[in-house]
Simulated scan of single mutants.
Amino acid sequence: MKQTTIRNLHRDLGYFYIGLIISFAASGIMMNHRESWHPEKYTVETKTIQVNLPAEDKINEKFADSLGKALGIDDKMRRNKVDEGKFKMSFEKHDVEIDMKSGKGEIVSYIKTPVISQMMKLHKSSSSWWIYYGDIFGLSLIIIAITGAFMIPVGKFNFKRRGWKLALAGIVFPLLFLFLLG
């Protein structure tokens, strides 16, 4: 392949996908920290409640669903659990946390954060159209990486002399995290 063709392909794919690359990168960073910060939603209202809870062994999906309805929550339940002496329920637009002993708790209501919520949907979407587009995007990133590796054909900074070492380090580094820290 001619050098100008490689440069043109690299440039044009880079320009075409620049918005998606930035969106994926930003939403990926947010997804990495979703356990400590909920970037997708923000608090609209916090309401204190008092509830009489049954024994922990009587708390199940059916109980959680009926309690949610009794508390006026009509959105879909995601999960519920008893953890560290607290009964926790998570809904699409609400989180509920109740102390098992005292029955005191709170309902936190959320709405989706504009733009951020839509960007994070990029990582979560399972529509067949988006999956195919994501596959094309992934292949394009591979092409961008390969063409980028051969854009500097000669000199001490080309792929054959220096680039392959950095590329290998770029492959080894995430593998170390997977195997040693995973």
Rank of each mutant, 00 (worst) to 15 (best):
S66Y: 15
S66Q: 15
S66V: 14
S66K: 15
L67S: 08
L67P: 00
L67R: 00
L67G: 01
L67W: 01
L67D: 03
G68P: 05
G68Q: 00
K69T: 15
K69P: 13
K69R: 15
K69E: 15
A70C: 14
A70S: 15
A70W: 10
A70D: 15
A70Y: 14
L71I: 08
L71R: 07
L71N: 06
L71Q: 09
L71C: 11
I73F: 06
I73P: 04
I73G: 03
I73C: 05
I73A: 05
D74C: 05
D74T: 11
D74G: 09
D74Q: 12
D74V: 08
D74I: 05
D74R: 05
D75H: 00
D75K: 02
D75R: 03
D75C: 03
D75V: 00
K76E: 11
K76V: 04
K76L: 07
K76D: 06
K76C: 04
M77A: 07
M77D: 08
M77H: 01
R78K: 14
R78H: 09
R79V: 08
R79M: 11
R79F: 13
R79H: 13
N80F: 14
K81M: 14
K81H: 14
V82H: 07
V82D: 08
V82I: 14
V82R: 09
V82W: 10
D83S: 14
D83K: 13
D83V: 09
D83M: 12
E84Q: 12
G85Y: 03
G85R: 01
G85S: 04
K86W: 10
K86G: 09
F87W: 13
F87R: 01
F87Q: 04
F87I: 05
K88E: 04
K88A: 05
K88G: 02
M89K: 07
M89V: 04
M89E: 05
S90C: 06
F91H: 00
E92D: 13
E92K: 08
E92W: 04
K93L: 10
K93I: 01
K93T: 07
H94G: 02
H94N: 11
D95Q: 03
D95C: 02
V96I: 09
V96Q: 00
E97F: 06
E97T: 13
E97V: 13
E97C: 06
E97G: 05
E97R: 09
I98C: 07
I98A: 09
I98Y: 08
I98Q: 06
I98H: 08
D99L: 01
D99I: 00
D99P: 01
D99Y: 04
D99K: 03
M100N: 02
M100D: 02
M100V: 03
K101C: 01
K101L: 04
S102Y: 06
G103F: 12
G103R: 05
G103W: 12
G103M: 06
K104E: 10
K104T: 07
K104V: 10
K104P: 05
G105D: 11
G105A: 12
G105F: 14
E106S: 11
